[in-house]
Design a protein around this nucleic acid. Sequence first.
DNA 1: CTGAAAGCGCTAACAG
DNA 2: CTGTTAGCGCTTTCAG
Lengths: 351, 351
Amino acid sequence: MFNCQRDMVSGIANRFVEGGPAHVVTITDVAHEAGVSISTVSYVMSGKRAISPMTRERVERAIQSLGFSPHAGARSLASRSTNVIGLQAPLRTGVDVHVVMQVVTGVVTRARAHGYDILLLASDDSEALQRAANGSMVDALVVMDIESDDPRIETLSKLGHPSVLIGLPDGRRTLPCVDFDFEAAGWMAVDRLAGEGHRRLVLIGSPPEVMQRHTAYADRLARGFLAACQASGVIGSVHACPSDERAADVAREIVRSDPEASGFFIHNEGGLPHAAAAIVAARGDSRRPAVMALCPEDLARATPGLMDSIAIPAESMGAAATDMLCAILSEGATPTVRLLPPALTSISTVR
Amino acid sequence: MFNCQRDMVSGIANRFVEGGPAHVVTITDVAHEAGVSISTVSYVMSGKRAISPMTRERVERAIQSLGFSPHAGARSLASRSTNVIGLQAPLRTGVDVHVVMQVVTGVVTRARAHGYDILLLASDDSEALQRAANGSMVDALVVMDIESDDPRIETLSKLGHPSVLIGLPDGRRTLPCVDFDFEAAGWMAVDRLAGEGHRRLVLIGSPPEVMQRHTAYADRLARGFLAACQASGVIGSVHACPSDERAADVAREIVRSDPEASGFFIHNEGGLPHAAAAIVAARGDSRRPAVMALCPEDLARATPGLMDSIAIPAESMGAAATDMLCAILSEGATPTVRLLPPALTSISTVR
DNA sequence: CTGAAAGCGCTAACAG
DNA sequence: CTGTTAGCGCTTTCAG
């Protein structure tokens, strides 16, 4: 009774407010409009109990006509779930923006399909994860750019919220992971280059700072590359490389100091066009090198002079991580490690 | 009394739950621990009323030791504000990922500095904006990639939430906008190229689909470019250009059909390296062209063969938009249009 | 099949 | 300077 009165008053008051922000429609407004109780409205929305067709119809019409959308905060307070997934993406430089962006796209797209929104966390540290989880801002977390021995892993383990890593840490691996199979990519590149008859192969990898950070993927790529060289009986070497026009210098120096090297595999977004161009130029027309890249497909297409490339299925990685997370969230699926396989992409070479 | 009992019970119960999610610490727990009322805890956090140093000390210690973070939903329900800013960023292809990523970085970074988190909206449409605003998921909105006559503008105007556009729509311009001054960039490129003695200039712009979408910035760039050509008494033409290796074909065709053109201004992320390389190659060493680009600084550095470039201050744009939004949110600042000026960046050319 | 009512955890009057 | 308490809008028993 008291409630009813209050609501009527506020309803009337709002109807006459001029110019102010539009009245925020609540579930109570919908219930009045439809002539039912608020619990019925709630159940129509959640589908958690049977509703007669007529009632449902009336409620849905009321929701429509009032333009009602439930208050997310109230909902999360009452239901203890937010329908939001937290995403920690590296926004610093030195990472491959293309790849990050595509992963984010994959995460956002799939999340939306599962009915989740994405909260983009501002910092890359453990604290941001705790804030989001303990503050009940999110139901679960996707964490990108995981390093070999990442402190965030322990934080996540004791958080009480499900999470998926994008990246493959060393060690106990107690959390679900999705990553690209960099090791397999190393093998694949070697197979391809050696198959073309090249006997001395060079991997031009991440910038020194990334190498030193012991970013798991750089190590795994090198490991796969070198192991495959050994297995194929060819000679392989690995070089760090800056991510800008200085890549050209590094590439020239490599060609100079190792003139027999004829197969190149570049994994370095920023340095890619420079290094590729420099290698081709330095060896001259008579000794054309084979240059492959590891990067998203569109970047490969945008780079002149590549033989072909191995695509990083970045969007698929984001999608896979999110799908896994949603499966855990809704069906209590068992967390696993998932490595997406490399795929050779042939490039329509520009003459 | 009743409350007290309930909390003690749940506290005890939780202490013995094994393996389950950790007990969610509430403001009541903190109040008990510190021996004060919950409102005191609340006021310690918000600073909205004076607290004796001793009490503050005790409360802060309790917050620390319990690892309390307030429930975001409860907070937004009670305070009618979320401390979240919604960000609608284009994740589709055909836009400049570098730029988008940098804008996002700027938004996230500044938002965090102002105490806001970022909700990344999943779709680019009006509906997503309404959902976020009406569902009280956000306090305000930043909307990227605004087109000349964007339907979202009307949606935003009647939303009752502050918002800032990144992009400059045509027409009434009732909402605050932040954008790069593309028109000034067109003038600047022409001044530079004409200053170097080039009398026939070519603007190689966005892909046809972007041009046709009437993306405001493409139009403004072309307008500035052409007006400046006229003012400087040089001949200018504008071409659309695909964003991949086909850019090379377009560039070659331009050089072929207009052999006198010697100053080039490229605004097309994906096509940039191809077009630049093709132009230089097509004209040969004897007739070296001047090639400028409009893109973020790091991409310019990563592209061989540029004379210099005009940087798009993408991160600053995100930062400016967010700062403006926060000023509106907290001080009721007056919304304005802000166009960030272009800056010439000289490139350390690779020999 | 539907309604009433008890909270969810917090903020902000109001009352000292 | 501090405590009490009435909601914020929703979900979910419990009771028909």
